[in-house]
Amino acid sequence: MDSATKKNIEDTLTAEIALILSKDANAIARDESLHSMGMDSLSFVELLVSIESNFNLTLVNTNLDREDFSTIANLARRIYEELHEK
């Protein structure tokens, strides 16, 4: 997914989170924190697994700091940067 735009990444993440949390993708706000959406340790790791499979990025052993991971928008930005650094 080298040519992924931030919008594509956000769409993919939204769809994955909707699947993990059994929610309607349209009801998911991209600037809402994953915690307030109802994510916990297990569902967050599920999301990391889906990021690996969709973007070929293994993030589990990075610092996973709140700044980059707390919202879909932030996470999409981080993934975009990682993909373009490769």
Binding site: D40, L64, R66, F69
Partner: peptide, 9 residues
């Protein structure tokens, strides 16, 4: 901070 965002467990 140490484990990562949401990784309390």
């Amino acid at each position: 901070k140490k484990a990562g965002y949401l990784l309390v467990m």
